[in-house]
Amino acid sequence: MLKKNGLLKELVTNRILFLMLLPALIFFLINSYVPMVGVYYAFTRFDFNTSLFNSQFVGLDNFKFLWQSGVLARLTLNTIGYNIVFILLGNVLAIALAILLSELRLQWFKKLTQSIMFLPYFVSFVILSVIVYNIFNYESGFLNSTLKSFGMESVDVYNTPWVWIFLIIIFYLWKNIGYSMVIYLASITGISEEYYEAAKIDGANIFQRIWYITVPMLKTTFVMLLLFALGSIMKGQFDLFYQLIGNNGVLYNTTDILDTYVYRSLKVTFDIGMSTAAGLYQSLFGFVLIMTVNYIIKKINDEYALF
């Protein structure tokens, strides 16, 4: 009773705010919430001739293929491991570059380099994989041609799994750094010049100014990016892994993630149930993780929490 009154009262007093939020609410309701009904596919056997809710209920059968091959633990670890590195290195590098860029005074240089760092974002992974092959292939790759001309032994990168851990991380950073850098750059722009002036007067040098003003001011942005990234920590960068590794089974132990596994496993099988099941597994994991992290953040400082 009380709650209802509260809601009604709130609706009336803040009607304009509600109206302003309405388009977003409708959008997510239709585009995201309605299709959520489909998670039920994960528990049924797909049937072309009846509707979803009349299909046969099969319990957890559709999840079976995930652990059937005995690689689920490895896949989960790989997926999370890569994502953690991506998140940490990606943000640290983006922050560093954004700070460096923001301190540069040469306007044309600043603008030009910013634009160029954005370029890799547009390079399709398909093309990237071709370029990577061109550099690293055994017989005629750029790397081996160079090594040979110095009289050194050729290296067989495509059959050396551990190298790919680094290559994948490097290419991820290469492609995405421009994007996240812009976010930090925008945040730095938002910091009031007054703080810096005041710090200067107090005798803080450039490093101190960055450390005690800029970095703390970026915390909100960082926490937000972190929370979003953590929510999808079980969802891998499919294109990156799929295009760079593809059919090369030699590298799977170090480079296979859930998304590529599911894609390969179901490419020849028609099964909505199994693909939904895999998605659900990834979602649940992310959900639990994010609720925990958000709870902890909220305990420490309410300001930074997402909700």
Binding site: S129, N137, N159, G246, N247
Partner: peptide
Amino acid sequence: VKNVLAVK
């Protein structure tokens, strides 16, 4: 070629 598994 040695890296046949990466040829597309």
